[in-house]
Amino acid sequence: MNVGLPHFLTVSAVLFALGLFAVMSRRNTVAILMGVELMLNAANLNFVAFSRYVQRGIDGQLMAAFVIVLAAAEAAVALAIVLALYRNYGTVHADTAQSLKR
């Protein structure tokens, strides 16, 4: 049974949904960031799948490579902010950081 494009797209959709669920159901900031990483990974999977099936050129894979690098940059800044937040707040739970809500 040969593996067609829809297989990859379905897997990537499920992965995207998992990431979405992780982001929504977690209170811990680091876990939310992990969820976002998962969603980015799902998009990556799509890029590579499309580049393989649809277009002979490999723009898709290049795009995926850029996304990986960018996710790393974003994760670095995100974790730096989490650290800064932890220093100011003492805890890492997303809900407790509510001093802005007047």
């Binding site: 067609g4 494009l5 829809p6 379905t10 959709a13 979405l20 669920f21």
Partner: peptide, 24 residues
């Protein structure tokens, strides 16, 4: 709980509409 499965349905429905699992 509700949104992710919804996302899966929408996403999969979206692109399955045009694609068949043609040979690799």
């Amino acid at each position: 709980v509700a949104i992710p499965p919804l996302a899966v349905l929408v996403l999969v429905g979206g692109w399955l509409s045009g694609r068949k699992a043609e040979a690799l």
